[in-house]
Amino acid sequence: MTLRVRLNGRDLLLDVDPQRRLLDVLRDELRLTGSKEGCGEGECGACTVLLDGEPVCSCLVPAGQVDGSEIMTVEGLGDGELLSAVQDALVRFGGTQCGICTPGIAVCATAALRREPDASAERLRELLAGNLCRCTGYQLVIDALCAAARPAAGPSGEGAP
């Protein structure tokens, strides 16, 4: 089946088995390995991409379903070597450790902050609840996202104790 998609801002025609998982098409066919497989059942969120602006687990999406859609992966968040505000904040405020969950978090948070630019730290915890991280305990991730949302206010989204 030939799919017409807009991927990270570029129009593409893809000849793929419609039953294949979007994650496999991205990783194996297109060599976009930033999206990771942590569980293969939509629990960990490491494979999160934006499908028409909505965060989805690409391990749960059959390729045939994305025909005519716009897809954004972690590779499309920045501009070449330049990092997006969310990515930059995750690095600067310690929001990435082993990094395997980070692409999914960066993608999901980008959508979350686009939709709710004023999201509180508590709200961000809810919006990111589909992205498991085993390293950070989440505090520095949330701090980083608060900083990305409100650059002037600094990282103390939840206030100092």
Binding site: S35, K36, L83, D88, V91, R92
Partner: peptide, 20 residues
């Protein structure tokens, strides 16, 4: 607390894990 040396590669999806 400088940015971690592998930070940019990790947040941009460029870091290569074994399956990558």
């Amino acid at each position: 607390s400088p940015p971690r040396v592998d930070g940019a590669a990790k947040v941009s999806g460029r870091a290569l894990y074994v399956d990558d």
